[in-house]
Computed example of a mutant assay.
Amino acid sequence: MSGFILNELLDKLTKRDSSTTRFGSTLELRVATADAKKRMVVYEYEVTEDEIFRGYLDSGWLSTVVDNATDPLIRAIVANPTNSYTTSLTVHTLEPVLAGTRVEIVCRLVQVEGRLLQSTVAFRDAQRKALVYATGVHTLLYKDAIAGAAKL
């Protein structure tokens, strides 16, 4: 179940009030660039106060974005993405960030082999590319070998 769908389900089940911080389907990631040859998508996003926890990007928000931002790459490579499940979703906060900061969310498909697919995500400053606020890795396993997927 994707992070967005899970979040919507939790909203209905717990009937959270609107003051509760939540990350879900209202998050607007703008595609800045996409390169099929490099198996890469770059999104742009302006960080809000809600996405910051103790000065860093919130780990729940990061996990949701990593899960959902890598989805277009996965769907571009795999004929039947419903035949997969996430085995690992890891995020690391690295540097403090301020509300209003424009970040680039750089998603790369780094491994497609046998039954395994892995993508990486870097949350970097849109102006100072060397400044990385957080990273993530999304690993999926497929029930059957990935048909027609070439090794990277």
Rank of each mutant, 00 (worst) to 15 (best):
Q111E: 02
D67E: 00
H92K: 15
V47R: 00
A147P: 09
A36K: 12
V97P: 04
V112I: 06
R22S: 15
D67T: 01
I105L: 13
L6Y: 13
A76K: 05
R102N: 12
K15L: 08
R39C: 03
G148F: 08
M1E: 13
L98S: 14
I146G: 04
D11S: 15
L10C: 12
T26D: 15
G55S: 05
Q118H: 03
I74F: 15
L73E: 04
G55E: 10
A36H: 15
K37A: 11
L152Y: 03
K37I: 05
I5N: 13
T93F: 07
Y56T: 03
E8P: 01
G24D: 00
A76R: 01
K143G: 11
V97Q: 08
V47C: 06
G100D: 10
A150W: 03
F4D: 01
C107S: 07
R22Y: 09
I5K: 15
L141W: 03
S84Y: 13
T82S: 14
S2C: 08
L62Q: 14
A34G: 09
T14S: 09
L57I: 02
V31Y: 08
V97L: 13
E51C: 14
L9H: 09
L131V: 14
R39I: 01
S119G: 11
R54D: 09
K38Y: 00
L29S: 07
G100V: 10
T14G: 10
I5A: 14
E49K: 13
H92W: 15
L62N: 14
T26L: 06
P96K: 07
I146E: 09
Y85H: 11
